[in-house]
Write a protein that binds this DNA or RNA. Structure first.
Lengths: 354, 354
DNA sequence: TTGAAAGCGCTAACAA
DNA sequence: TTGTTAGCGCTTTCAA
């Protein structure tokens, strides 16, 4: 398509430096043997011509493309935007770059999948709210390393890094019960997303094991309007719940606002709302959301470590890594009298039961 | 580095299909002459082996890498996350993909620049709050098409697409004055970012041309804490301003919250706060921010069109395109009695003066 | 329409 | 340490 401009080649540099192409190649290859004299000549010539060996051509030589596919449903979601940013920064240190694939909920693997092949990505990081297992499996068939970020399938062979969804859900239930709430509700995201499944399962499991009734329930699809509708349904019920656990922070923020503006409720006073993620916005004074944290930094670090060992071929067994979080106590939910610790940076954490 | 898995090659497919490698290549080349019989054989074999020609190798054949560099300071910023998402979706239609570069304010061109060369990006989209002209210029030296998104330098040869920063700033001043405000303030971002410069210039130009005094001023650096500090400075001044124009929505949201939680002010009642961008969050009930819109969709469309014509080599002259927005009236600022139109989707727009 | 052969920009194995 | 040579996976002449 594009009548590409003639790029500067190693040959051009070699000519200018008065050496062979191999000499140029070696200069740009770490640990290759070149004399200082040659190296300097090459570097100088390269500087003049502004030459840099082409990664894309190098790819043909089985050294990897240094391109990591990053698939997300929506980047609009601040949580995933942060994930992209963190992963990108960390990967940059080893010369890897993220190639963006917005799946937009379309988990039809084929188009994206063939793109991944076309670009010869070294690996794929799947950070999607929806259960995109087909894509993950297809990639594994191709021996393209895959890491699922923030979603997992325990039955799958695909390696994953996720927050403590089940444990967090349990902890939130314990927190609300300890806070004296009895009419609980769960505001769901997408039913079959692993995130939703695990968090809800944890929440319900606590209630079940304490002989408490199942919570009320409504579904919000991870969108603002969806969450708002679900909130109306919950708060409009005959038996209005006195505490709502929202599947994630974004959902919780929508929930809080509807509770305030349409039901005249004040979170933390006459209704308790708890989220999951601890995104930046949750800390804003307007919300001050009580939430279970997902330690993004640590999750990103672990994902990168695993990625590298997969790229090196060191690691083959699939791992399902769970990075623990904490219940961050703020003002959007009535807090139990006991079990709150204050950390150095002023963060309050509830370590009551589990 | 990575002991890459043996990828399926055109040769493998050729063997299985019982044809030559050329036949395989032609099958995957649009407009090449292949018989239906051959084509079917190849397609079938390719399907079995799940083959897709390598984009990276094709790059060596001067057809473009189909990789577009996308450089942002922070993806954490919801505005830029949306930009990334829109551009990515639109570019996907022509088989292009975004390769992510987080500059993090580091506008040291060198490392990023050599990466752009290394990956042989077909073009670069620079969507940075800071003035990263050196990078843009360096790319142009290399004949890598560059588009600056949401920042521009009128003196530069680099093509840009931006919102109506100057006009918007003027319009906001007019709006506040028409609303009866007299003690205006401007909450700045980063001084030398083109966004800040133009919006502030527009704002001041209206005041100047109407013989009104210069506004109070504080600087917030585009961060929440920075904006919060600046707000404290403004609202703590002896002559407290009765209206604040914030350089962008993010800054305005921080400003609103500090005004409420620390000064007991209610935006729209005893203080007026106006932003710029019309991001999703600004529409949230908790904020309902009056703001000048940046029509992201149209900006993205224009950027893509320009990109394609640059890629085709059709367009060489640099263009500085300004996509007009509108003053969206919500409740965070006292509105003038006149000049408000209501659009079909319930959006209120002020079309008073300009 | 087809396959053989040359070549894209680069790296790696080989002698020198 | 060097240049020569072969070859990576693919596209594109060029004859047939």
């Amino acid at each position: 398509m594009a009548p590409r401009q003639k790029a500067v080649t190693a040959g051009d540099v070699a000519k200018l430096a008065g050496v062979s192409v191999s000499a140029v190649s070696r200069t740009f290859t770490a640990g290759a043997s070149v004399s200082e004299v040659t190296r300097t000549k090459v570097i100088d010539a390269a500087r003049v011509l502004k030459f840099r060996p082409s990664q894309t051509v190098q790819t043909a030589y089985l050294r990897g493309s240094y391109i990591i596919g990053f698939a997300v449903a929506e980047l609009d979601d601040i949580f995933y935007a942060s994930v992209a940013q963190m992963l990108s920064e960390r990967l940059a240190k080893t010369g890897h770059r993220l190639l963006l694939f917005i799946t937009h909920g379309n988990t039809q693997l084929d188009p994206i999948h063939s793109e991944l092949l076309r670009f010869r990505v070294d690996a794929l990081i799947l950070a999607s709210t929806d259960p995109s297992f087909p894509l993950a499996d297809a990639c594994r068939d191709f021996r393209i390393p895959v890491i699922m970020f923030n979603s997992a399938n325990a039955n799958s062979e695909t390696t994953s890094v996720a927050g403590a969804n089940f444990v967090g859900g349990r902890q939130i239930a314990a927190f609300l019960i300890a806070g004296g709430h009895r009419r609980l509700a769960f505001l769901a995201g997408i039913e079959n997303s692993s995130m939703n499944i695990e968090r809800e399962a944890g929440f319900n499991s606590f209630l079940l094991s304490h002989d408490l009734p199942r919570p009320l329930r409504a579904q919000g699809h991870y969108t603002f309007e969806g969450a708002a509708q679900a909130t109306r349904k919950l708060l409009g019920a005959k038996e209005r719940p006195d505490a709502i656990f929202c599947v994630n922070d974004f959902t919780a923020l929508a929930c809080m606002q509807v509770a305030r503006s349409e039901f005249g409720l004040e979170p933390g006073k006459n209704i308790s709302i708890v989220g999951f993620d601890d995104t930046n916005i949750s800390r804003w004074p307007a919300f001050d959301l009580t939430t279970y944290s997902q330690p993004l930094e640590r999750m990103a670090d672990r994902a990168i470590e695993m990625l590298h060992s997969m790229l090196k071929g060191t690691q083959f067994k699939s791992v399902h890594e769970v990075v623990p979080g904490e219940l961050i106590v703020r003002s959007s939910a009535r807090a139990p009298a006991q079990g709150i610790e204050t950390r150095k940076d002023g963060v309050r954490v509830w370590t009551g039961a589990s």
